[in-house]
Amino acid sequence: MTAALLDVTGLSKRFGGLQAISDLALRVGEGEIVALIGPNGAGKTTAFGLISGFLTPDAGAIHFRGRSITGLPPHRVCALGLARTFQIMRPFPRLSVLRNVMIGALGRHADPRAAAARAGAVLEELGLAAKAAEPAGSLTLSERKRLELAKALATEPVLLLLDEVMSGLTDRETERLVGEVRAINARGVAILLIEHVMRAVMSLAQRVVVLDYGERIAEGRPEEVANDPRVIEAYLGDERL
């Protein structure tokens, strides 16, 4: 394994009576693509919330680029180069698409003109340039998914956390987004993705981590994990029942 860019150890989070994450260990190497999968309610999005600073862990440590980011607020985590998207997309609806992406770019380019130029380049790359002047609230689902990605990308991250950016897309749209994610990765951006669209997971991920009831139940190359009986059981239930 390459040097760990993100190193999560012993991570736990409880919401009332629900142990959402327990003793999770997770590593993402430089330039790696790792998929985090698991049935609904397995704790994937909670893990993202903890890593990106939106939630505070009950126990455990999160190291990013060699320094502890445990308990840092989200904007500090983002400034260090770790950006996330939201499963429930969060565009700034009344602002233009360009403005939306500029907000991500302004962290590295304080001058709005430089930020607008950077945002324009990201929109170009993701095929949204024609929509730059439209209010974000008017975009289609597929466009909003790519806007969510564009905003995160504009912060110039070294690690991108993608929370179900493929869900609800048509096959063609998925294929296109897979290509775009691969191109982003080719520039050296490591990616940790939560995904239910298995075709995307299989073609993108170098490594897959499977969560169930907040615990890591399997880890390995995509084809290994897909044939792991524990994984099949987690998704389909125990056939003996």
């Binding site: 990106s52 939106f54 607020p73 989200p74 904007h75 983002c78 400034a79 950006a83 996330r84 939201f86 969060r90 565009p91 700034f92 609806p93 009344r94 602002l95 403005r99 907000i103 991500g104 302004l106 962290g107 905003k151 995160a152 504009a154 912060t155």
Partner: peptide, 14 residues
């Protein structure tokens, strides 16, 4: 303006 539109999204973008 970003804070007004969606505070958490703004926070996530730094």
């Amino acid at each position: 303006a970003a804070i007004r539109e969606d505070e958490s999204a703004a926070e996530a973008l730094g």
